Amino acid sequence: MTENWAAFTTAEPDLAALVEERFGAFTHHVLATLRRDGSPRTTGLEVRFLHGELWLGMMPDSLKALDLRRDPRFALQANPGEGTGMGGGDVRISGRAIEVEDPAVKAGYVKEVEPPQPFHLFRTELTEVVRTYVEDDTYLVAQVWKPGEPVRTLKRA
């Protein structure tokens, strides 16, 4: 089961706002894709939250775009910033990236973002959103959301 960003924000508005804030704190983040041989590839990436979608834009024929065309599964890690004191904790999003072919949709994205042309554009379908943080300098807390389920909170000393 997958859902887009709008469905996630409707289901879990507080967690979604925190995740967007963490991604908004920095320009560059880390995308993990799968190479042809199944091994992981990590690369830098800028992301956009627009019109209820999480968008991934990429240079033409970049290896990460070719990876996603072959196997749409991805994991996206927000830039943690300097040190470990970043407010909001660590956030990750996993899902599937679907390439956008519709010229009208791409034109709308271009109007908002003004990316270098040409480019690949992918919209995302989420399979998991995870936030981890330290509470009271004692507990490692993980909040895990999956489509169709409420957020689960796990705490470890």
Rank of each mutant, 00 (worst) to 15 (best):
N4T: 07
W5N: 09
A6K: 14
F8A: 02
T10N: 10
A11E: 12
A11F: 06
E12S: 01
L18P: 00
E21R: 11
R22P: 01
R22N: 15
R22D: 03
R22I: 12
G24D: 02
A25K: 07
H29G: 03
L31T: 08
A32M: 14
A32F: 11
T33W: 11
P40M: 02
R48V: 00
L50A: 04
H51N: 15
G52Q: 12
L54Y: 08
W55R: 10
W55K: 09
S62M: 10
K64W: 04
A65E: 10
L66P: 00
P72F: 04
A75N: 10
L76R: 10
E82R: 13
G83Y: 13
G83E: 12
G88A: 11
D90Y: 07
G95R: 09
G95N: 09
A97Y: 05
I98Y: 04
E101P: 00
V105F: 10
V113F: 10
V113L: 06
P115D: 02
P116C: 00
F122H: 05
R123N: 05
R123T: 14
L126C: 06
V129K: 04
Y133T: 01
Y133C: 01
V134Y: 08
D136G: 00
D137K: 01
Y139E: 03
L140K: 02
V141I: 09
P150A: 11
T153F: 02
T153L: 01
T153V: 14
L154Y: 14
L154K: 14
K155M: 08
K155F: 00
